[in-house]
Design a protein around this nucleic acid. Structure first.
Lengths: 233, 233
DNA sequence: CATGCTAATATGTATGCACATAACATCATT
DNA sequence: AATGATGTTATGTGCATACATATTAGCATG
């Protein structure tokens, strides 16, 4: 039997994938170590390492030092979502983007919000509500709080032509954050703004971002009925 | 000024991240090339490459051959969601997992479904409905179609103690698929099963998986009100 | 002026080697 | 038998080097 010779890490990855799909290596199985695979594939161990590392990152393999590499018993599907700027989301689909500022003012927020943001209780936040439109139809309602202590420049920005969504993403750095997705029944006001029936089921995204331990902003985005967030596996 | 010397790719990555956050390198800026950075950091180009490659994968840098590396103008936040097996989702939170089969039968599906699955029109599918419970409360309703042409073994499985969700993930390989998330108003039947009010807003996940061009399964999972899908940024 | 060839350049990747590190196995000690 | 020291092993990473490849700039040619 001639060694087929897999010279680059992509083809090594493909071959490993093939064996997993063909169930030559079953979930839970320990696969040969890098050195052996390198010999079998006729390439350097580095190359095998690169291929396996990549597969591990995608959740198809579990790797542990000394213990070896095994096929993930329960392939946790990792879906990568691209949380784009809403404007791009819309224009990428060939629709016309529209924007409308609903409200912008500085307030001392109710405890629930400053609690989530872990700001001081009396800390004033900038509160902005805006509507994103696709082909003139309401698309998403942005409800945002900005920590003025961290982002004082925000106070000088009139969010009347472009959304806080865009401005913050382009002007304010952050180190980490969290996102949560859920479903919410439309309140009367929300239904009004989004031009849908009250009690409609809306897709909701909550996002909290931080910069070196200081909370930057909290946003809730409510999408008009029919919105879908999609991704490949 | 002494060169701080960043010896491993993680610390190089951290330093690059720091510069991005500190806006020493602003969005859209072209950053020094790998060779120069390697000299500055006192490490090999390979190490810089590893760091930058990783950052590019996370969407913070845009890299092009010959054109160089620049800070992403619009940092598309990439959120990676771990779509776990529902049982794990529940037990990981320290709750008791429960399962209940509602229905299982072979049917010729309505055109809408076979259309989405791109199976032959008259192709019979196995249809299974099941309920997942957390601490005895309804948690999610699984509504699944399985392509019996591709997965004939499924016909022999009684899904009375463990869900198709688990069985398929552990027994049937797939090459690719797609996931969509959305919100849906609970129908009367759905509300009944999930023990919630009719018209509640439910978080919905639709998933379609393929194996080498053949559709394997299509599933719709409706989560009981209150469900949140979370992830770090 | 348009077009196409060519050279320069930055990233992409393969390789052999070395050493670091985690985790397990084994054996000795108590 | 429990505990701890020690060695072994597989992955993790760094480095120097070489070559591959995409893309751009510049030049030459029609």
């Amino acid at each position: 039997m001639t060694a087929p010779s897999f010279r680059n890490w992509q083809s090594v990855q493909d071959e490993v994938l093939r064996r997993i799909h063909a169930r030559e290596w079953k979930p839970g199985d320990l696969i040969p170590n890098e050195a052996d695979l390198a010999i079998e594939f006729g390439c350097a161990r580095t190359t095998v390492n690169r291929a396996l590392r990549s597969l591990a990152q995608n959740g198809l393999l579990d790797r542990k030092r000394r213990a070896g590499t095994r096929v993930a018993a329960q392939p946790v599907a990792k879906a990568t979502l691209d949380i784009a700027i809403i404007r791009n989301d819309i224009t990428d689909r060939g629709q016309k983007y529209g924007y409308q500022l609903l409200q912008s003012r500085t307030i001392v927020p109710p405890p629930a919000i400053s609690g989530a943001m872990k700001t001081g209780a009396g800390q004033p936040l900038l509160h902005v509500m805006a509507l994103h439109l696709a082909d003139d139809a309401p698309y998403a309602l942005e409800n945002r709080w900005i920590n003025t202590a961290v982002v004082p420049q925000a106070l000088d920005v009139k969010f009347d032509t472009s959304s806080p969504n865009e401005w913050l993403l382009q002007n304010v750095p952050y180190t980490n954050g969290e996102i949560a997705f859920s479903a919410k029944m439309a309140s009367r006001d929300e239904a009004d703004v989004l031009a849908c029936l009250s009690q409609s089921a809306l897709f909701k995204m909550d996002r909290l971002t931080w910069d070196n331990g200081q909370s930057v902003t909290k946003v809730q985005i409510l999408f008009a009925p029919g919105y879908q967030m999609r991704t490949e596996l």
